[in-house]
Amino acid sequence: MEVSRRRILQKHLEPARPLRRCLHVNIEPQFNTATYALMKEVEQERSVGIEQFYKVVNLHKPKKGRISYTRDFLIELANCPEAMKKPEFLPEHPIVLTKARDPGHLRLNEKWWNPGKEEMVEERLHSPY
């Protein structure tokens, strides 16, 4: 008896929240009429403004979104003449080459390792690229 009465009591206390929700629902339809259309229009206008603003900003700071490239795309670019030029500042050092290496080795697809074909890999390793 005690327990069930408490349950009733709790239930009795709850409606405070749904009331607020009701209020919200009541307001919602008012947006769906002319007001809403107007708001949308204003929003559109504003978003165009922001877009333009970002375009201007991006001229100076081009790295806004995340710039990602696939391996294949990067390797394609290795073959363009721009990528073979000698950098303007390059220290003199034993590991630095005077002429660009042939990017040919990059064209080989990376399937140099295949599951279950370890022997082939070993063979590949002993032959020059």
Partner: peptide, 21 residues
């Protein structure tokens, strides 16, 4: 030792192709 800095894909390849593997 610093070899060099780059900001683009092309600049990367310029350095990379001028270094031994």
């Amino acid at each position: 030792k610093q070899i060099g800095s780059f900001a683009s894909v092309e600049q990367f390849w310029r350095f990379y192709s001028h270094m031994i593997r």
